[in-house]
Write a protein that binds this DNA or RNA. Structure first.
Length: 470
RNA sequence: GUCCCCAUCGUCUAGUCUGGCCAAGGACACCGCCCUUUCACGGCGGCGACCGGGGUUCAAAUCCCCGUGGGGACGCCA
């Protein structure tokens, strides 16, 4: 069986977005699950819009997601000679012709056709130009497409889709400046790079019959082709930059884990029974093209968030602590990964949905936080001062400062008051964290350490006295 | 407008190919209860869908047709 080769071929005109990332993922998974190869090609024939920054952003995005490519990246701008030769071959064989219509003229004719309710096609008027007529004039090279008959796309996901050739266009192969266009280079590249399976978004389905015609004209075998349903925004319709958050890297910057993004993406249009959680390793085993659906799906950030919470909850604290550092730095907290920071992480794994959120919640571990007046008034009441004193004394006397020991102390104090633990735990929480929400109070003490707990409790007791005196 | 694709809970989906196991299963979100030192986590329960109409069949979410709805493509962009 010949080896399977797939590819991801983004155009570097912006960041890696959700849709592109999923196309890359599916291509990679399909290759991997079939012991094939996955290659990366940068479609940068549009010199106006392609930027090196965008190339870097795409590579970075794939790297972050953990999708490696086996070959490339290839750049189309480095293969111009090949495209020019192929175009000339078609010209020489009479399968292409020169067209001297200007973009402005075409635009006018398109509008006229649209106004009449026709499909705005090129009218092929330069097909019959006398030989030599185009010499010396600015011209493009157009494909001489058949006017009759049909072309069938044998789509891997959708079955056969048949187009009337008269619906198709004489598409431009080479622009006036000699640079090739997408539909042409994609065919030349996929053919010459030995791509066996072209898997891309549904928005390309209508291009496919033209490309098949090109394969045939060029004498290349037509690869297997399949089109994935598109990913829509929450409002339906194409993902939009304004309405939806579509940049993959923006999610990293907001504290999302790549495994959450992968897991979310793979479930958009693909399913495996009732299973919801998938690792990259597992996906490489079980991914099947047959399980990819046909209908478009909506991008739902809520579910992504849920998945992220899951991976934070189950993630390795040591690794998470490394990832947390930049988020702390952004809040002007200089921390470095350490067993202690891993301990901090552990106290938040079940409560944070993102690393960003975790960094925010963790602030009081690094610098004491003042409770707001209302909270202070409610929980740091005068009768708490002596209680805090007592707790401090007991903590000081502790041979071993650990959660069990501090729990014993608080329970004892509570019992003496004849109250419930909450009665004293909340004020202690406010004294320690400046707020009423935190991980378990004994965990918090454990992270803070004996000295800091004593310090904060003493400060709080002092404040209470100051206030009731003044 | 023309061509093309698609159609199961609000959302992601299982089931559709190979009709009966489906008075349609799971997940997110939402609501309630339980657990509980707060917040979460977790557990239990609830709400909630086969777009409509014809046909085929003993039997249709599943097959066929027609509507309707949604989406995509119609560039010297990719």
């Amino acid at each position: 069986m010949p080896e399977i080769v797939t590819r991801f071929a983004p155009s570097p005109t912006g960041y890696l977005h959700i849709g592109g990332a999923r196309t890359a993922l599916f291509n990679w998974l399909f290759a991997r699950s079939n012991a094939g190869k996955f290659l990366l090609r940068i479609e940068d024939t549009d010199r106006e819009r392609s930027t090196p920054e965008a190339v870097a952003a795409i590579l970075e995005g794939l790297a972050w997601l953990g999708i490696p490519w086996d070959e490339g990246p290839y750049f189309q701008t480095e293969r111009m000679e090949l495209y020019r030769k192929e175009a000339e071959r078609l010209l020489a064989e009479g399968k292409a012709y020169r067209c001297v219509c200007t973009p402005e003229e075409l635009e006018v004719r398109r509008e006229a056709a649209r106004a009449k309710g026709d499909k705005p096609h090129y009218d092929r008027r330069c097909r019959d130009l006398p030989p030599g007529e185009a010499d010396g004039k600015p011209s493009v090279v157009r494909f001489l497409a058949p006017l009759s008959g049909t072309t069938a796309v044998r789509d891997l996901l959708r079955g056969d889709v048949t187009y009337k050739n008269e619906e198709l266009d004489d598409l431009v192969l080479l622009r006036t400046d000699g640079l090739p266009t997408y539909n042409f280079v994609v065919v030349v590249d996929d053919a010459t790079m030995g791509i066996t399976h072209v898997l891309r978004g549904d928005d390309h389905l209508n291009n496919t019959p033209r490309q098949i015609l090109l394969y045939e004209a060029l004498g290349y075998p037509v690869p297997r082709i399949g089109h994935f349903p598109l990913i829509h925004g929450m409002e339906g319709g194409k993902l939009s930059k304004r309405q939806d958050d579509v940049s993959v890297m923006a999610y990293r910057d907001r504290g999302f884990l790549p495994e959450a993004m992968i897991n979310y993406l793979v479930r958009l249009g693909w399913g495996h029974g009732d299973q919801e959680i998938f690792s990259l390793d597992e996906l490489q085993e079980i991914f099947r093209l047959e399980n990819v659906g046909k209908s478009p799906s909506r991008f739902d950030p809520e579910k992504l968030l849920h998945l992220n919470a899951h991976y934070i909850k189950t993630g390795d604290p040591k690794r998470l602590s490394v990832l947390l550092v930049p988020f702390l730095a952004r809040r002007r907290i200089e921390a470095e990964a350490s067993p202690w920071l891993a301990k901090v992480v552990r106290t938040f794994q079940e409560r944070s949905k993102t690393l960003e959120e975790m960094a925010e919640s963790a602030e009081y571990y690094f610098r004491p936080k003042e409770p707001d007046p209302k909270t202070s008034e409610k929980f740091l009441t005068p009768e708490m001062a002596p209680l805090f004193d007592e707790i401090v004394r007991e903590i000081e006397a502790l041979p071993e400062f650990d959660p069990e020991a501090t729990e014993t102390i608080l329970n004892r104090v509570t019992r003496k008051m004849g109250a419930k633990l909450g009665k004293i735990a909340q004020p202690v929480r406010v004294a320690l964290t400046g707020g009423t929400v935190s991980p378990g109070i004994f965990e918090v003490m454990d992270v803070l350490g004996r000295d800091e707990v004593i310090r904060r409790l003493t400060v709080a007791a002092g404040r209470i006295r100051e206030r009731s005196a003044g």
